[in-house]
């Protein structure tokens, strides 16, 4: 039963979702909307508990075993509780404060303020690293070690030159050629991969619906 029930639910819901794509009837569409929005949100809310439980367990174990860099686990746990308390008691909307005051004079520690002033700059810092990683990856990729790498180097060189305004004056056909590389060979390759991906998604979905692929059961079905 533990194995059969999830398979049955997947079969029924999966076939219904596929049918809803073809049936524009309002009754079918509204049931489909409920599945897609409401049911998924309820599941996500439950899963949050699992996630928080995992974080706490992972870091408590680190502290208990005095694993490498264990003091940082204290920071994670304290930050988790502080943000949870502020978010739950201080309210989400700055215009509708909760039972916990989140403004002391001109200083605000509202959850949205914390998010905008701590999380967003930290995320932006990580994102900014991408520029440096792109440079190092490009250096590695553009070393002409074999035919494919040489081809990549040549294509990138043409595209970079094509994007420079001066090239249109010095070598007039080059920007158009660069455009052609993007529009024709590049798009053709992307579409080829796209077909494979779509078929792969389709076949995997079908395997799940038919119960051939049961990995999503947590290995229990294999």
């Amino acid at each position: 039963m533990k194995r059969q029930l999830p398979l049955l639910i997947v079969l029924v819901v999966g076939i219904f979702a596929a049918a809803a794509f073809l049936i524009p009837h309002p009754i079918v569409r509204s049931v489909d909307e409920v599945f897609r929005n409401d049911v998924l949100r309820i599941i996500a809310a439950f899963s949050l508990v699992l996630g928080v439980g995992s974080i706490l367990r992972h870091h408590f174990i680190k502290i208990k075993r005095k694993a490498a860099h264990w003091p940082f686990s204290y920071i994670t746990i304290v930050a988790l509780f502080i943000s949870a308390i502020i978010g739950l008691l201080g309210g989400i909307d700055p215009n509708r404060p909760g039972i916990l005051p989140t403004q002391v004079g001109g200083f605000s520690f509202h959850i949205q303020t914390l998010f905008s002033n701590i999380m967003v700059p930290l995320a932006a810092t990580m994102f900014a690293l991408l520029a440096f990683f792109m440079a190092s990856a490009a250096y590695r990729a553009f070393r002409a070690r074999n035919f494919e790498a040489t081809l990549l180097l040549a294509a990138a060189f043409i595209l970079m030159l094509g994007a420079v305004p001066l090239t249109r004056i010095v070598i007039p056909p080059l920007p158009d050629f660069a455009e052609w590389i993007l529009a024709v060979p590049n798009t053709a390759a992307k579409r080829g991969i796209g077909f494979g991906v779509s078929l792969g998604i389709f076949a995997t979905s079908l395997k799940i619906l038919l119960g051939i692929e049961r990995g999503w059961l947590g290995g229990g079905g294999s």
Partner: peptide
Amino acid sequence: ADPIVFTV
């Protein structure tokens, strides 16, 4: 990075 994926 996802609680449900974590459980599975």
